[in-house]
């Protein structure tokens, strides 16, 4: 059953189209990773899904409700915002007890979640004295206090050192496996999330350009780029595009995207012979995530 469903979302900021006809579904039990480079629209998408921003077009259903108009939609949702901030003048425990009251849960829950995220010793500290990493943990505690069914986390590892990162990721994984919490998490790097998610959505320029399991993404990343340096790149590119779907001229090189690099070598060889094309070199490269994203633009 889909817990979160967005269809055809569009969000503009003035002339910038931050989210462009984006659709995504998060089903019960999933850990979905929303992966994309800076400025791709991850945060905007998350805010639209929570009803924090007003969408220009499209539909959002969170637990069956429209989050912009129906606060009930957020009852079972915990949120970790990007660079989380809290009322600075409160102590950790005070803030969380207010949150507990807002969600109508027992005050005991405060110490429980503080222990879960490893912030128990800091319970009497003022929030403004916490480090960025500690604030990140507080955000997680804050998001878990009401035992949500869905946890939405916007780059939850961004302020942490490597150990902190993997701790948080392990925690997310545990929350999903042992507590059955559905998780929607964003990041600008794939590899660290690939370990824990069961679905990946790649976002670029406000659109989901690829969806699949981590292994499918890996498969896609196995695709090769063949780089050809030639005398007359424009001409050769035109000829190659009769054989391949994706041919790009980049400076003095041509990039051909293919899962069969041998074919490119063969055809380039043929063209050299038949059409007297001057080629200086051909090599094949691994597709990086950034390349993959660029490819779908």
């Amino acid at each position: 059953m889909p817990i979160l469903e967005a269809r055809g979302l569009v969000k503009r900021f003035g002339r910038i189209v931050a989210v462009n006809n984006l659709s995504i579904t998060v089903s019960e039990g999933d850990i979905v990773g929303l992966i994309g480079p800076n400025g791709a629209g991850k945060t905007t998408t998350i805010r639209l899904c929570l009803g924090i921003l007003r969408r220009d077009r499209g539909e959002v259903r969170l637990f069956g409700y429209d989050p912009f108009y129906e606060p009930k939609s957020r009852e079972k949702v915990g949120v970790v915002f990007e660079n989380p901030r809290f009322p600075e003048a409160l102590t950790v425990e005070k803030m969380l007890s207010y949150t507990a009251r807002i969600y109508g849960v027992e005050a005991d829950r405060v110490r429980e979640v503080l222990k879960i995220v490893g912030l128990y010793e800091k319970r009497n500290a003022l929030i403004k004295t916490l480090s960025a990493g500690q604030k990140q943990r507080l955000a997680l505690a804050h998001a878990l206090i009401h035992e949500p069914l869905l946890l939405i986390a916007d780059e939850p590892t961004s302020n942490l050192d490597p150990i902190g990162r993997s701790e948080i990721l392990d925690l997310l994984s545990t929350l999903n496996k042992d507590y059955g919490i559905t998780i929607f998490v964003s990041s600008h790097v794939l590899p660290e999330l690939a370990r824990i998610v069961n679905r990946v959505a790649l976002i670029s320029r406000g659109q989901i350009v690829f969806q699949g399991t981590p292994s499918e993404v890996e498969e896609a990343l196995k695709e090769k780029i063949v780089r050809i340096r030639a005398k007359d790149v424009e001409d050769l590119a035109k000829m190659l595009s009769e054989y391949f779907d994706r041919v790009e001229v980049r400076g003095a090189s041509i990039l051909v995207y293919t899962d069969n690099p041998g074919e490119v070598y063969r055809i380039v060889g043929e063209l050299m012979v038949k059409r007297n094309v001057v080629v200086y070199g051909v090599e094949s490269l691994e597709v990086q995530l950034e390349e993959l994203l660029r490819k779908y633009r």
């Binding site: 805010r47 929570l50 009803g51 924090i52 606060p71 009930k72 939609s73 957020r74 009852e75 949702v77 949120v79 915002f81 660079n83 989380p84 901030r85 809290f86 009322p87 807002i102 969600y103």
Partner: peptide, 10 residues
């Protein structure tokens, strides 16, 4: 960003 926190509550 505290305001968006408020808006994330039910």
């Amino acid at each position: 960003g505290v305001f968006q926190l408020y808006l994330s509550y039910p």
